[in-house]
Amino acid sequence: MKKLKIAIFDLTDCEGCELELINLREKLAKVAEQTDIANWRFASHNHDLGPFDITFIEGSPITEGDIEAVKQARAASRLVVALGSCADLGGLQASLGAKAWTQGLKEVYGEKYQTKSKPPKPLSYYIDVDLHLPGCPVNQNELANFLSSLIMTKRPEEARFPVCLECKAKENSCLFLAGKPCLGPITKGGCQAACPSRGLQCWGCFGALRGGNHHAFKSNLEKKFGQEKTKSLLKNFFSNQEEFKSLYPREE
């Protein structure tokens, strides 16, 4: 069997998802053994220019150079994977929206500052993305299953359940019922309820669950926390998703 040729690129982000890849340790070694990791700035001397079977892109493109790079990567790859929430959803940096982003730059760097960056967007804003692996950071188990699926010519399956499933599986008592604005019920699972298991509310980093009852959840949140806080909570990770747009149709 021919080895899969893999490239891993990173853009604007914290590199935490790549770190999770490294944290796979012996599992990553097995992946490297069964594939050809041909380009990975973060952890390899290989700088092959493609073509690739699978290209993982971490982070969100923000400069013209980034955009050009992802377009080139797309053209050179059979499958493109959005690795982590920055690539998949735009990440926290996308939650501001274009207006607030420009405003923020002025406030921090002054009126005269000429930025090269554009408001952050998910990868899919610029190129077609074949596979999605969200998370801030990605979950190691999901990552391992994702990689093993690719090795065996299998399309990795996305979680079809909310965070609550894995949260109840861990027998956590409900943070939402305890009065915290936990986004677990409408957030895509796969994180193994990492935050709620440590007493922290879910911030929605895996993105909105497709088909979830976001309208019901939003009005419930609004009753408890008011419109403004609700919106800012939902905006953190969902701002570029269809689900968010249907909740706030007039949003830029």
């Binding site: 909310p162 499933l165 677990g184 019920p185 979830g212 009852n213 019901a216 419930n220």
Partner: peptide
């Protein structure tokens, strides 16, 4: 259908 979050808990 307007209140249930569809979370499956």
């Amino acid at each position: 259908a307007e209140t249930c979050f569809n979370c499956g808990i």
